[in-house]
Nucleic acid binder design. Structure first.
Lengths: 253, 253
DNA sequence: CTTGACCCTAACGTTACGTGAGGGTCTAGG
DNA sequence: CCTAGACCCTCACGTAACGTTAGGGTCAAG
């Protein structure tokens, strides 16, 4: 049972041009072509399209989606579960937006005035680097958190850029290991996530292995952090978590 | 107390380039400039920016936002209330997405198989036919709204399909008139939009000419309805609006 | 056969910025 | 005062994800 491009467009509420585009960029190629050159899509193609649309709904670029879905390790069920968490996170954000509107209306009605920061607190994207101290506060002791606050307050723009570059490099290394099929408890994986621990230690606060394990739990429990990793590679949050645990176990001797 | 473009960008979690762009297109112009030519934003500018970001969050184009906010009748409190409603709707949509994911997961787990339509039922855009009762609620009295609710609750898939076909036919007729250069106050144009009024009367609720005029105002004031018409043909929302007004005038004798 | 709906490829245009270039301004510290 | 880094300006090319149009072939019902 094959569908032409128009059928699919109507079913999926997208345009024919969109499907042409997805074919062109290799995101969703029809499984067959008629003798006349018509694109013919199967049910499996439709399933792929549904997945694309879910990712699109979550703000992924088409290139990101293509990479995620072309990964041999891509698992539809797992992807759906992760997407579910991300959408739940988006719902939280909408709640926050509603809260901000209510606060603004109250302010307009002569109630409590808002600070300028409050006016925009919900907008913008999640940046994990901005939340490491939040992480610390949640998982660590007060003294080390103070260390973190003292450090970060002195960082320059270049400092943050260097931190970002280093974090990106670490993540790229982890992805490479995943791509090679290196298990999360392999010494190479452990070394990679230990670089992450040292990054935190260097840039934010003293980070013991024990502390790192606490963070690892959070990386898979908190959808914001998980989404950040899943955006890079499906399954990455879990991999990082597992590697961190293995690394801590190794360090414990 | 004035803010430079960098201050505002950091506060609002947008880029400097974004603020430049908004200045260029007249969406958000700084209230002042320093002698050096720096953009200087006031608190009121920040309030405007917040409003822009809310609209942006709701998917409005920058041009739509600019038109809305440059309207002399623009009222911030009223806008916030409308935005609140729209965000609440978005939250409902997210719920529907979650439901679709759950349904898909169930299907994958060997549960009830999904139809191809179900796979994509949440995706796609605003369909005015699904919101006529919302229109009524906003513009009409409660009794007629109850009539509408009683009617639509009984409609089948086929009913909706027939309604859609009829609506599309009416729109096609209107487009044809526009293409022929028929003025909006020509009897032919009036007859065409009167078919629209009767469609509502038949499918939703009693729709007087007076009511229809109220709807017409909404069709150009509410970007969702306006976008719906503009998608069919540029200028169509205004044309329909004008024709409805002329039609009501004619009916008034 | 005819016609309308649908298909194809090709290509320019649009929206909302991202990025880089080249140069001026501001301010704190030496 | 000088310096250097952060920040400002305008200008302009590039990008992602299509929308739209052009020109022509295919399919199926009447």
């Amino acid at each position: 049972m094959k569908h032409t491009v128009g059928d699919v467009a109507r079913l999926a509420h997208v345009s024919v041009r969109t499907l042409h585009h997805y074919d062109e960029i290799g995101l969703l190629k029809p499984s067959a072509h008629s003798e006349a050159g018509y694109r013919l899509y199967t049910t499996e193609d439709l399933e792929q399209l549904q997945q694309v649309l879910f990712y699109k709904e979550l703000g992924f670029t088409l290139e990101e989606i293509r990479e995620l879905m072309s990964d041999p390790a891509f698992d539809r069920r797992e992807a759906l579960s992760t997407q579910r968490e991300m959408i739940a996170e988006q719902a939280l954000r909408l709640d926050a937006l509603l809260g901000l509107i209510d606060k603004t209306l109250t302010s307009l009605g002569g109630g409590i005035q808002m600070t300028k920061e409050e006016m925009f607190e919900v907008f913008g994207d999640f940046d994990p680097a901005e939340h490491e101290d939040e992480v610390k506060e949640r998982w660590g002791n007060t003294e080390a958190y103070k260390v973190s606050a003292r450090r970060t307050s002195k960082y320059t723009k270049d400092d943050w850029a260097r931190h970002k570059a280093e974090a990106d490099d670490i993540n790229a290394g982890i992805v490479a290991l995943m791509d090679e099929g290196v298990p999360a408890d392999d010494p190479r994986a452990m070394d990679a996530v230990d670089r992450h621990r040292l990054l935190i230690d260097t840039w934010f606060y003293p980070c013991s292995h024990e502390m790192h394990v606490g963070l690892a739990e959070m990386y898979i429990a908190d959808p914001r952090f998980k989404a950040n990793y899943e955006k890079i590679r499906t399954g990455m949050a879990q991999y990082v978590h597992d590697a961190i645990l293995a690394c801590a176990k190794r360090a414990a001797g």
